[in-house]
């Protein structure tokens, strides 16, 4: 089997507000890997994920996706392949459908209702949730819809930034079971930041960031 290096990070640094937030990060991630990133608050975990997502730009070093420097990609095309899910996502528009149709809109494609309903049901939300007003949803429901939004068109790399930190155990299990199921049936790479020890153990590789530096890589 050919192993594809989907992400390669070389001497990556991020300097902002007179502070070196990330310093000389070197990391290689292979296609299909599930990597957990752990570390104390403020250590730079989320910053690293946002840089990989191209939501912010590194201030030094190199970042390669599929062997090509990130600068060579059109940013919006890149983000369709490397998709970032926020810790406390904001749903937009009025209904759940407005959110699930958005990935189709930006690709100039017709909304695939059946697929959205299938995904809603897989995360324990009934089909009629499609027309539900977003301001009537609970935090757990919003997070589930946000994750569906990210994987309706399966990205090559899914970046999850503490997506279950504000959720109860039941919601957390629903989301992880669903994502692990998708992962098992595809070659999607997942990078996840988490404070929760149980969540971190889901990854087949754990890396730790301390004070902006990569401290250890532990293979499970």
């Amino acid at each position: 089997m050919i192993i594809i290096e989907i992400l390669k990070i070389e001497n990556l640094g991020f300097f902002a507000q007179n502070k070196q937030i990330l310093d000389s990060i070197n990391l290689k991630i292979q296609e299909g890997e599930f990597v957990s990133i752990v570390g104390p608050s403020g250590s730079g975990k989320s910053t690293l994920l946002k840089i990989i997502a191209n939501i912010i730009s590194k201030t030094s070093g190199n970042l390669y996706f599929n062997g090509k420097p990130i600068e060579e990609y059109n940013s919006s095309d890149y983000r369709k392949e490397v998709s970032y899910c926020f810790q406390a996502p904001v749903l937009f528009g009025k209904t759940v459908k407005d959110n699930l149709s958005f990935p189709y809109e930006i690709r100039n494609m017709e909304f695939h209702k059946e697929k959205s309903i299938k995904y809603l049901e897989e995360v324990n939300l009934p089909a009629d949730y499609l027309d539900k007003k977003i301001n009537t949803l609970s935090g757990g429901e919003k997070q589930r819809i946000a994750v569906i939004r990210n994987v309706l068109f399966q990205p090559k790399v899914l970046l999850l930034d503490e997506i279950t930190s504000a959720l109860d155990a039941e919601n957390r299990d629903i989301i992880w079971n669903w994502l692990c199921n998708i992962k098992a049936n595809s070659n999607m790479t997942i990078l996840m930041v988490s404070h929760n020890e149980d969540d971190s153990k889901l990854g087949d590789k754990i890396i730790s960031i301390q004070d902006g530096k990569l401290e250890l890589q532990e293979v499970e």
Partner: peptide, 19 residues
């Protein structure tokens, strides 16, 4: 935050800022 989310889903700046 909404614009950031739309961008992270792969929207172009124009698509993210349409509303």
């Amino acid at each position: 935050q909404q614009i950031l989310e739309k961008l992270s889903l792969g929207a172009s700046p124009k698509q993210a800022a349409t509303s």
